[in-house]
Write a protein that binds this DNA or RNA. Sequence first.
DNA 1: ACTTTCACG
DNA 2: ACGTACGTGAAAGTT
Length: 584
Amino acid sequence: MKALSSASGPVAFDTETTGLDPQSAELVGIGLALQEGEAYYLPVGHADGPNLDPDRVRSALRPFFADPKSRLAAQNAKYDWHVLHRFGIPVRDVAEDTMVAAYLADPDRPKNLDALAATRLGIEKIPTESLIGARGREQKSMAALPVERVGVYCCEDADVVLRLVPILEKELRAVEGLALYREVEVPLVGVLVRMERAGVKIDTAALEGMSRSLGDAMSRLDHEIQEAAGVPFNVKSTRQVAEVLFERLKLPKGKRTKDGYSTDEEVLETLAPLHPIPRLLLDYRQAQKLKSAYVDALPKLVHPETGRVHATFHQTIASTGRLSASDPSLQNIPIRSEEGRAIRRAFVAEGAKGLLASFDYSQIELRLLAHFSHDPVLSEAFRVGGDVHTATAARLFGVAPDAVTPAQRGQAKTVNFGILYGMGAARLARELSLSRSLASAFIDEYKKTHAGVAAYMAEMLARARERGYAETMLHRRRPLPGLRDSHEGRRAEAERAAINTPIQGSAADLIKVAMVKIDALVTERGLRSRLILQVHDELLFETDEDEIESLATLVIEAMEHALPLRVPLVVHRGRGKNWDEAHA
DNA sequence: ACTTTCACG
DNA sequence: ACGTACGTGAAAGTT
């Protein structure tokens, strides 16, 4: 182990474990690669041994993993970081993550280690399946295999990682992505580890109550629907629902799906005035969604040891640079409907003194649009500080802001969002229930009153076409080969992505910078408060009465000044015993 | 494994 | 006449 501390270059590490979830999987062995072609395997958890004494492994490795001068490298370091931490080897920080690097080189290309080995090194790695079989119920555990076989496999992984580091670094330099990688994405790995480890407390008793009442509502609605239909059918089956609505009841068919007719919310909403069943179906679907996706799902994810829910945040999934979350998907917890907000109230702070504090960016994407486009109208709206949708409506309808009606504001809001997504007249017409030509006139009027925005979008598209990729504030790139596709539909799709990605992706850049800064400041000041969730434009902290004000000062400052913009960034804050209360 | 639907920003 | 608004994750039915 002497060699470890004297290693000057990066040291790649890899863990083999008993499962896929790093918060419950147990360590089987550790692989370390100090130079190419040379790697070591430390077995600690093989059922039949021989294993090294875990305590000796801990004492031998702790100094190295705790040393800020160590340059640790791994594929998806977040996973190994969790496992080692739980094993008793705290990780100070990592310097390289090949999965993150590959994601920045091209977010849409495969970035699992086998793929990276094949595309960057021309190496065909030992297939994982050859050791533990295909994933599924019959998959074996690494712990059940001989040390020799797992060791070779693990060493190969570590070796491949070590070889990939300089290659990916070169790729990142070539795409101007090195600063984003080193200053934002790699530091973020540790932030995400700490968020995942913290988890969030759930009021399971409240959810159990909701489960019963939702279940009752569902059986009642199911009964009413079957009664009204006059034939028994599975209300959960879209195919059978379509048959009942469009063949038996002869209701007007709307949009098509791949095979058959759609029964989605929009269709059911238009059919609701014609027959009682569509409304009942809508109610049934809402109850079913809330019950299965949240109320019944969340308690199953409570960790037996911590009593909290520890989601996984994915740093290399979203093409735009956003984070995603799974198990559970914490970024789509209901808020829009009152029924759904009850679920948010089950996300609570720990202990009697505990508080949740939420901070969210106000209109971050439209502010970024104002920043990028220099559009005077949009920029002025943000500098003045009023409601942006009202300001847009005032321009669009040629009235004073105080004269804007709620309906006009709603239409302007739809237009504003539509602009961010590259919406066409057809969709706007549908959204606003206008004729297509009127919708088209709307868009023309917007482009006239917001000439800077129109010019910016045209410029953005032209640049993306020329370069073949869209780019964010921090030079995050998203290659868009679809821009040159001969298929018109796919080309149009890529064009909309070219318009939206710089906005959505720059918003992701901003909040990631803020997260890294906040994490460092919270540690530096020795605060107890913990960042527990990120929902694209919102950060949720668990804190307490004594600390919340100093936390808020620090967080708001970091978020509002994460990166300099030509328009002010505004953060709203809220606090409470649960997430619904805390949401600003 | 794929499709449809729907929860969120 | 194109039903062409961006990005996700999960459950359930269907194949």
